[in-house]
Design a binder for these strands. Structure first.
Lengths: 214, 214, 214, 214
DNA sequence: AAATAAGCGAGACGGTACGTCTTGTCTTAAG
DNA sequence: CTTAAGACAAGACGTACCGTCTCGCTTATTT
């Protein structure tokens, strides 16, 4: 994630650094970022089980109470840390060509999930959502729904362009495209190559009478 | 799971239960079953986070040491409990008709995952596998691989019958069939009706030039 | 203690209270009294252990910083609160008759220590002085020494009147008179009746050849 | 206090050392002694305010839970530590001569309270008893009552020997003897020399028509 | 009238200790 | 040799106060 350090204290504009330790007009941005960064780092270093509120506090140089003031659980911290990092990571391609966009998107998602650090956090959060319905709800509304919207975007654009029929059940089609990817990531842990994702796209195109691969 | 209860503790004569505290000939089946049952019950009652070794021991009327002697973690206990319960639950249909078998199988899997108590345990185990690579390995070898074999079975039989070409990539096809189901269960938590699973089967059949539903 | 309440906040004219939030020259008497009163009340309500700076601030409707600006510890606040209340409480009797004055004084001290609310504060302060030498010094100079002077007063007057010899060791005599009272209060917690204090006075009178009670 | 170290693990008889870490048949004597010793040491080193359960646990090499299992508060630990140390410290003199015994006893008590390490603990406990009525009760029954009995012992023996009348109010007389000593220790903190305690004894002897000092 | 500067309320902050909980190990005595 | 019982060291949990800090408001003087 973006390192905090000193650069965060002074905005580029030359305004004086906030550097405050909390006051009546809001929380310390410094503390907030330090916590998110510490959580990220510790998850990678020690795994989810080794990630503790105590550890985050120590690593971040922050009082435990400061964490509990703004977050309720370590999963809550992780979710914020994740959002901080990848707000814009998975931008969807828009070449105007459905086949090309879909292939690129599926490859992106697959590599994000299997090879990136935020992908590891993402998997941990999905896992935690299985154990904790309350968190599941929050995770879905603050994170998954956005991702789902991104996954559907190429199809929506194709509908707009007239490449796909307007009455298509986009949700179901998205499930068929993304489902197998998540399945391999979360359940079978088989590796996911381009041939796998491309085949999913081909099946989709074939299903809708579009020419698969040139 | 099979209830242990009193029958094992009291002989039919009405004499006080033997309630043995160990003997020199191997482990106590009574203790083993009590532990598995307690784990199952507590998972349902208190959720995964509320499931503790301490709690299992107390509920089972068993010493903690007895649990640690035979299992290493609470997830390990849960896995055994799961296997004890559902060894034979998800038997695969074999009507000789691929379409019918696939439709039935996907509905079975969906309802198992979303509506049954062992399904909840199963989801908890998949979740834990994300956090713990060691457990993931064991879970896969003792549980997931079997399930994967069952998922593939209808296709294998169809290949034997000549309904499907012999060079089909069964793994990839299985992923496309099952993936969306697990995706909805684990990620989106949308409900899964027969229309959803049937559509997956139809897509599969269509993909391979077989007539989808009349 | 003297209740602050509204009288201080509203001038007689009926104009809304000034309720000032500080000014450039000097501290807020309102805040000072609110703190002392809150400390007194909380000690009675929750005991010494339950008395906290945080609690005093909340109860007094005052910022913590305002307390720390003028006092260093909760014991420091308590001492001020005590002095505010009982500056004049234990006035010494002066009838011109040593026996009568002593008997009255000992009864007053005993009932102050065992039965009054400020007496409870006083005991708490003596206790704290055992734990904290720094506070002990301040407590002694700002409070105990005065009390000790009052205890000695009847004897000094008797010396002046010629009832007692001039070379009497007043400190030691005072210790013998007051010591047993404090001992019962602080150590044995036995009840102290007039027969007990009168006997102490009788012993003193007898010791110096004065007729004890007719 | 008796140092624990290794000698405590083997009784002199050659029986195998307990050295156990807890079992179903009782607590660890090793842990118990380590806690008491740590509490004693820390009180001396850091004072009462600096004495914490956490600190005791760390110093004793013991888990916090082990302390809380057997004691409820730090004062509770201190009381046990005190009793462990001074069970036999203040043995009362018995020369057959009341004057001599009283003088010796008062000097002993005075030097115990003002100059010994256990005396410091004792004062801390008396102080705490002012703040906490529950502890006060326990302290009195487990400690103070014994001491009071010892203080009365010389008088009781004198009554038996016929030196003092049988109908003497021993409690009141003891208060007059000991009260001034405790008063100086707890309240005025003046130093207590032999001339002060001897004078108390003389006053007592004089009061009962016995020849004071030869 | 405007500027100044101290006291004020509020409340976030880094810490420390609290008392509780669970983990995994150990010891014991019963069977 | 297994068992139930349960004490133990370790360490995280979430809470409560500590004493410090920064902030923006109020207010009484000083310009």
């Amino acid at each position: 994630m973006a390192r905090v350090t000193q650069t965060a204290e002074t905005s580029g504009t030359g305004r004086p650094a906030p550097r405050h330790h909390g006051n009546r007009h809001g929380r310390s941005e410094l503390a907030r970022l330090a916590v998110l960064e510490a959580a990220d780092d510790l998850l990678v270093e020690k795994g989810f089980a080794g990630l503790t509120m105590e550890g985050i506090a120590t690593r971040a140089g922050v009082a435990k109470q400061t964490i509990y003031r703004w977050w309720s659980t370590k999963t809550d911290v992780l979710l914020d840390a994740f959002l901080q990092d990848v707000a814009e990571d998975l931008t969807v391609h828009d070449s105007g060509d459905l086949a090309r966009d879909l292939r690129a998107h599926l490859r992106d998602v697959a590599s994000f999930l299997t090879a990136s650090e935020p992908g590891a956090v993402y998997k941990a959060l999905i896992a935690q959502a299985q154990h904790d319905p309350v968190f599941a709800r929050e995770f879905r509304s603050r994170c998954l729904d956005d991702q789902r919207r991104r996954d559907r975007l190429p199809l929506e654009r194709a509908v707009e362009r007239g490449e796909l029929p307007a009455d298509l059940d986009l949700a179901a089609e998205t499930d068929q495209l993304m489902g197998p990817v998540y399945y391999r990531v979360l359940v079978t842990e088989e590796s996911i190559g381009a041939e796998f994702t491309d085949r999913l796209v081909d099946a989709f195109l074939h299903r809708h009478g579009l020419t698969a691969r040139a």
